[in-house]
């Protein structure tokens, strides 16, 4: 038997080549084309929201009597409202408000929903019983009615709109997280963590919580569209975002009755913006659900 004429360093690496971001992106687009379209639409609105100043050179709050109700044209791409404000720049800045409220209320709703659901499913007993009854009560009202009463109670402002929409979202999140926690707490890895002497809270936060993230992401993407629609409805009814913020729902409310005949662009363009962003988040939400919930994939 002769000694090999190469060293161990010269052997080819046994490591499986890691797939890059570009590979995952292409796979996602190929498997979920509608989800990719949704992601692209959502990204366009996110870009507008972050870089609104660069997307449009016009100020959304500057009034000009000379351009009142100007039709779409070279000076105002999507026309001007009754105060002569540029509709395109108001829509671009409106994306910031809409996404801020949508993402903000979804995050706040998910945060409290996760906390309540986790505690309810983990502690059980009286805490669970009382929490579940309160959730039953909160779910007895439609999202908009609950948000309407909350918004009216808190008063119109950006922060209050986020709170008003996030509170009705809590029960949905808490229910899902609770049911997941109930099944997870009986799993062998939780039992072994308990046997290792970890505290119950440590097990709940470090071991159970990360395993509830997949359904949480699915739910959050589905709730995002609902939150954006609710903000638009609240602002349309005059109980959401106050002036001078450029809110899509408020833009429609200002133009609803008076300008349907004379300036239909005031009705059409803000509505397209709302529908497109919700359409995008819904498509993305469907793809995320299919990706993370294999049971749904076949249907």
């Amino acid at each position: 038997m002769t000694a090999p004429n190469f060293t161990i360093e010269e052997l080819p690496s046994a490591e499986i080549p890691r797939k890059g971001v570009w590979y995952h992106f292409r796979t996602f687009c190929r498997r979920y084309p509608l989800g990719a379209i949704g992601a692209a639409i959502t990204l366009v609105f996110v870009f507008c929201a972050i870089f609104a100043e660069f997307v449009t050179g016009m100020d959304p709050y500057t009034t000009n009597a000379a351009t009142s109700l100007a039709a779409p044209g070279s000076s105002h791409m999507l026309g001007a409202d009754v105060m002569g404000r540029d509709v395109f720049s108001r829509i671009v800045y409106g994306a910031r408000i809409s996404l801020m409220v949508g993402v903000g209320s979804t995050l706040v709703g998910c945060f409290f929903g996760v906390f309540i659901g986790l505690a309810s499913g983990y502690l059980l007993g009286w805490f669970d019983l009382i929490t579940q009854r309160i959730i039953d009560m909160m779910q007895a009202l439609p999202l908009l009615v609950m948000a309407l009463v909350m918004a009216a109670s808190l008063g119109p402002s950006l922060e209050n709109t986020i709170i008003a929409i996030s509170i009705p979202l809590i029960p949905n999140v808490a229910r899902i997280i609770r049911s997941n926690t109930l099944s997870l707490r009986e799993m062998p890895f939780v039992e072994s963590a308990r046997a290792s002497g970890f505290s119950e809270w440590r097990i709940a936060i470090r071991h159970v919580l990360p395993n509830t993230l997949a359904p949480l992401i699915v739910l959050a993407t589905a709730q995002l569209g609902a939150a954006i629609l609710t903000e638009a409805s609240l602002s349309f009814l005059g109980l959401g975002i106050p002036e001078p913020h450029a809110s899509w729902g408020r833009m429609l409310s200002e133009s609803a009755a008076e300008y349907v005949r004379t300036a239909p662009w005031l009705v059409i363009f803000p509505g397209i913006a709302i529908s497109l962003v919700v359409f995008g988040t819904n498509l993305l939400g469907d793809a995320v659900r299919d990706m993370l919930d294999p049971r749904q994939r076949k249907t």
Partner: peptide, 15 residues
């Protein structure tokens, strides 16, 4: 069906 979920009913009414 996705459009139905995305269109705000008040905007559809206005349209």
């Amino acid at each position: 069906s996705l459009s139905g979920l995305s269109l705000p009913s008040f905007w559809l009414g206005l349209l």
